[in-house]
Simulated assay, not measured.
Amino acid sequence: MNARQLEIFRAIMRSGTLTSAAQLLNVSQPAISKVLRHLEDQLGYKLFERVGGRLHPTAEAQLLFINADRVFREIETVRDLAIRIRERRIGLLRIGASAPPSFAVLPATLAAFRKRHPGVKVILRTLPAEELAEKILVGDIDLGLTMSSIRVPMVQAELLMTTRVVALMQEDSPLARKAVITPADLADQVLISYGSHADVGVPLDAAFDRVGMPRTIGIEISLAISALPLVQAGLGVALVDGLLPWTRFPGVTVRPFEPRVLMSLSLVTSGTRPASRFVRDISDDIRAAIAALPADATAPSVATSRSDRSRARRT
């Protein structure tokens, strides 16, 4: 028994006559009769009794039809799915991102993307840079956004923007009255910040060394968002990236840190697999969202002009 035989059998059961089944499948009535006879010969039992010029399904045919109908309904579902995928009405997009771009960039990005692709399911995972690169390599995610360097073969990282390091403090801190925060201002503060092994750790250490101060970390963090509850609880002053929209959180104040130390945001994709149409599409949305960020969230870089060019292409 093959799929064509089942299709013809199902058409006969649903239409009631060989002629109607032939019209339904756009084939000749003799061709339908031939396939039905061959099917009955293969099965070794009758599927229809011919009484008064009409076909009456046998009990065996009724049993067979239940499963044949289910199979073809599933095939029709798959066919409909394939058409909707072709028309870009549904799909899947898997994103890995650190906390700063998840807060600052992805809301506007996904709003624009889903307006055009409401049927696309988006899976968003918060991942450290090492795990993000690994999942890009094995194909578990389609693209990533990270504030850390990616130095993994076969993984591509495109610089999108830079942002400066800022000081985060309680809103009633005496330091909140200052326009900028320097290493000297932090001499008597418990410092909450990234360790020296982090990408930004070396330039931060250098900023303190230039004024003859060690960067003594009281509470070391690996994720910027981890500093928020610590600062809110009065445990210290944090030096963290300026991309996170810190002013949205209650009880804290943010000030620029001098000398200026920059952190980079990169778009990470596979270097071995071609990007899907959804990856290419949302990449433009990411660049547009970055171009629309407040000026104090970004620092001048080559990525700014690249984003402007991308936005111009879309308009």
Results as ranks from 00 to 15, higher is better:
155 V>A: 02
290 I>C: 04
227 A>P: 05
57 P>D: 02
212 G>D: 04
7 E>H: 03
261 V>L: 00
151 R>C: 08
1 M>Q: 08
194 Y>H: 15
162 T>I: 06
290 I>K: 01
52 G>F: 00
249 F>P: 09
112 A>N: 12
144 G>H: 11
270 S>Y: 04
54 R>M: 00
306 R>F: 12
305 S>W: 14
19 T>Q: 08
250 P>G: 05
293 L>A: 01
287 R>I: 08
129 A>L: 02
48 F>M: 00
252 V>H: 09
216 T>K: 15
72 F>Q: 04
159 L>S: 01
129 A>H: 01
126 T>F: 14
165 V>A: 10
28 S>V: 04
73 R>D: 12
287 R>L: 08
214 P>Q: 06
176 A>W: 03
105 V>I: 06
18 L>F: 05
297 A>Q: 12
311 R>C: 10
15 S>P: 01
295 A>V: 15
284 D>T: 11
5 Q>W: 13
287 R>G: 08
39 L>D: 02
219 I>M: 09
241 D>E: 15
19 T>G: 03
77 T>K: 14
265 L>P: 01
184 A>S: 07
255 R>D: 06
181 I>V: 12
127 L>R: 00
165 V>N: 05
273 R>G: 01
205 D>M: 13
299 A>D: 01
227 A>S: 06
251 G>F: 12
209 D>H: 10
253 T>W: 11
278 F>Q: 07
171 E>N: 08
154 M>E: 14
168 L>S: 04
235 L>V: 08
223 L>R: 13
108 A>R: 15
3 A>M: 14
151 R>M: 13
24 L>R: 00
208 F>S: 04
263 M>I: 07
78 V>D: 08
110 L>Y: 11
96 G>M: 03
113 F>I: 00
17 T>F: 00
128 P>K: 13
10 R>V: 05
278 F>H: 12
247 T>L: 14
189 Q>L: 09
305 S>A: 15
292 A>M: 10
96 G>N: 01
210 R>F: 04
125 R>P: 11
172 D>G: 07
110 L>D: 02
183 P>F: 10
191 L>S: 02
2 N>V: 12
60 E>M: 09
33 S>M: 03
234 G>H: 06
121 K>M: 10
199 D>W: 07
202 V>P: 10
198 A>S: 11
208 F>R: 08
170 Q>W: 12
158 E>T: 09
271 G>Q: 05
143 L>G: 00
270 S>T: 00
296 D>K: 07
112 A>T: 08
260 R>I: 15
80 D>L: 14
2 N>F: 13
145 L>F: 06
34 K>A: 15
59 A>I: 15
245 P>Q: 10
283 S>C: 09
46 K>I: 07
104 A>M: 09
219 I>F: 10
163 T>I: 04
168 L>T: 13
78 V>I: 14
301 S>E: 13
211 V>S: 01
59 A>S: 12
217 I>C: 03
303 A>H: 14
177 R>T: 03
23 Q>R: 15
215 R>W: 06
183 P>V: 10
282 I>R: 06
241 D>M: 09
113 F>R: 03
237 V>P: 05
190 V>R: 15
216 T>R: 14
28 S>Q: 10
31 A>G: 10
257 F>L: 01
212 G>L: 11
240 V>L: 10
51 V>L: 12
123 I>S: 01
30 P>K: 03
211 V>C: 03
269 T>E: 02
17 T>K: 04
220 E>Q: 14
204 L>H: 11
76 E>I: 05
107 P>N: 06
257 F>R: 11
86 R>D: 11
